[in-house]
Amino acid sequence: MATPDQLKTNTPPLLRVTGLKRYFDVSEPFLNRLLEGKSRLILKAVIGIDFKINRGQTFALVGESGCGKSTVANLVVGLYQPTAGKIEFDGIDVASLTSRAQMALLRRRMAMIFQDPYASLNPRWRVDAIVSEPIRAFGLLKGTQAIFQRTGELLAQVGLSPADGEKYPHEFSGGQRQRISIARALASEPDFIVCDEPTSALDVSVQAQILNLMKGLQKKFDLSYLFISHDLAVVRHMADRVGVMYLGQLCEVAPVDAIFDSPLHPYTRLLLDTIPDPELTGRSSQPVTGEIPNPIDPPSGCAFHPRCPESTDKCRREGPELTTLDSGVQVACHAISASSEK
């Protein structure tokens, strides 16, 4: 059964991730384990997830801390090597690239925007050196004059002045630094940008500026975004499709309106119920009991069952698979797949 998305476009997705897994060995050093008789500890940060991102679209991953969404971002851009699974960019299996030159061709087409505008810019570098680093790293332009010219253009594109290139990062506010970060991401003319919580360190009014800027740039350069966030309101504003993550797994993947207007998975509903709502709609927000489990020692079966109001014996025993419903929405919940089969 093809999803409506697949029917719409004939071109392959820009990014396709299948069965992606990443485990971290967080056990104590060998000697300590030997002396204290402790066993190995494996943190399963990402436990087999699949998604795809179409050209010019924004796919958002939401979830609470420790759900593995940032790990996915780091896997996609190659900061981590996957434990298992496949990442295909524009039809090319990333793992099949071996030479530096091949990797550079791929890396030029991807960029990343980070969360902390205070840590993501080298404090000892001038802004024009920061922004032009990808140009120099990939050898896109020759000659200082050409690079200088281009850096000025990039700064202007993100709403800064070309003269700002002379300054150091500490002379800018958080929002302006995030603009510099975006200018750097655009420097290699990528078609895909991974945004890891790009506005969570910013004030709301600054956040609005940055989100508007990112949307404008997306239209202008036909960019695709992988947008990582814990803020559902921001996700609703930015995303075309949304994946909700809980303890390293996707529990629901759907178009943005479906997620917000008719959430299916109990965890998605919980998330939506708990956000404090500045619009005073009078909706009763019911606090949910229970905490996020420790990812080193996740619950058996469906990871969400201890907090789920509808959990059954089956949920405690076996984890549900992500299944595609007739509507094209993908959801991993026994209760929902059972009712759709009927």
Partner: peptide, 18 residues
């Protein structure tokens, strides 16, 4: 400037400058 949970707007109101 606060994104809404209830409807999707094309652009957020923004206060220029900092």
């Amino acid at each position: 400037s606060i994104p809404s949970l209830h409807h999707k707007s094309e652009e957020l109101t923004q206060i220029e400058g900092t």
